[in-house]
């Protein structure tokens, strides 16, 4: 399983529209995709409620993990977009 570690820079954190875009992209994956704060338990990246529940604020790091390298790149780009 591959990983990407990125910093969320959007003012609203990984909430609202950024969260929705992120989950929509993750839902395209065939296998499991997770997102976590470093050192914490990962949650299902396809679940909007789980991603919102992580409460990722502006400036916080997240670790995205999955098998599809291309999708991980896409998710990393969404998560780190301003």
């Amino acid at each position: 399983m591959a990983e990407r570690k990125v910093t969320v820079v959007a003012e609203v954190g990984l909430h609202a529209r950024p969260a929705a875009t992120f989950v929509q992209a993750a839902a395209k994956a065939e296998g499991e995709v997770t997102i976590a704060k470093p050192g914490k338990d990962p949650v299902n990246a396809k679940s909007i409620l789980a991603v919102m529940g992580l409460d990722v604020r502006q400036g916080e790091e997240v670790v995205i993990a999955g098998d599809d390298e291309m999708l991980l790149d896409e998710l990393a780009a969404i998560a780190s977009a301003p």
């Binding site: 609202a16 529209r17 929705a20 989950v23 929509q24 679940s47 909007i48 409620l49 789980a50």
Partner: peptide
């Protein structure tokens, strides 16, 4: 549309 679209996504949440 954005607001209600996000609500629809919550309704379809796989965890739920």
């Amino acid at each position: 549309r954005d607001v209600l679209g996000a609500l629809a996504m919550m309704a379809r949440d796989p965890g739920l």
